[in-house]
């Protein structure tokens, strides 16, 4: 079984999730990664979705397209309203938050609002949704996205969701006194942030990927951690569970 890029990212992300935690996931890769972790190392991981859903247990092959629909609510022990879910996050109940990104910069700031100027954009993107709230309020935040220069930019056109803003202490100075962006998972690598400067750095490589490849796919100067590991390849059981969840039969 050869894993696709999406499968490699999803599996890498799922391995970051520990048991007995609460994860705030979006649909797509974050939900898949959470569901996969729930079937492997984290059977008591509680998956929360912004549609007011606490303890989502989506049916294999009928994964939700939106966080606000019956497929997402299936099997949940509690349904509440949207604002209430985010207030749980603000109180500090959510250990992990998961985000995608149209653009992400060296300080982990995310743009999902617009390419170009916000008032009269070149491309109007869908907007924050809950992304800004997740990155502002959850305790540990993971970003999952494909690794390409147009996504990994020097500075995002618009800070929809603040990572470390301008690095150093600027996140906390803005009033975001809780939570931190801890990892960025891509199809090429696992990245984290330098402890002081909060600059993104290369931490580990996906199997068969070189440092040069990662640098070429990154639109800013990328520091490399002292020791670089290679991430373990997707295992057959991980792939099998993932494909079952996705409803892939062959």
């Amino acid at each position: 079984m050869t894993a696709t890029q999406d499968e490699i990212m999803t599996i890498t992300a799922s391995r970051l999730l520990a048991d007995d935690k609460v994860v705030f996931a979006g649909v797509g890769m974050p939900l898949l990664a959470s569901a996969l972790a729930g079937r492997r190392q984290a059977p008591n991981l509680t998956v929360v979705l912004e549609g007011g859903i606490i303890g989502a247990q989506p049916l294999p092959g009928r994964l939700p397209i939106s966080t606000n629909e019956m497929r997402a609510a299936y099997g949940a022990p509690m349904l509440t309203d949207i604002t209430d879910i985010f207030l749980f996050a603000q109180r500090g109940f959510f250990d992990y938050g998961f985000l995608g990104a149209a653009q992400v910069d060296r300080y982990g700031n995310i743009n999902t609002s617009c390419i170009g100027r916000h008032e009269l954009p070149k491309v109007r993107l869908p907007g924050s949704g809950g992304a800004n709230d997740i990155i502002s309020l959850c305790t540990e935040i993971f970003i999952v996205t494909t690794h390409e220069p147009r996504r990994f930019v020097e500075r995002v056109d618009f800070v929809t969701s603040p990572g470390y803003l301008h690095g150093w202490g600027s996140r906390a100075e803005s009033g975001l006194v809780f939570g931190q962006v801890s990892k960025v998972v891509t199809d090429l690598a696992l990245l984290d942030f330098e402890p002081e400067s909060k600059h993104m750095r290369l931490r580990a490589l996906q199997p068969g990927v070189t440092v040069d490849q990662v640098r070429a796919a990154t639109g800013f100067e990328l520091p490399v951690a002292d020791s670089i590991e290679e991430l373990p390849a997707p295992r057959p059981d991980e792939l099998a569970i993932l494909r079952d969840l996705n409803g892939v039969t062959d």
Partner: peptide
């Protein structure tokens, strides 16, 4: 009062 949207360009615009 809330802790969300602080520091972002959303808050500015």
């Amino acid at each position: 009062p809330t802790l969300t949207m602080l520091g972002s360009d959303l808050a500015t615009v």
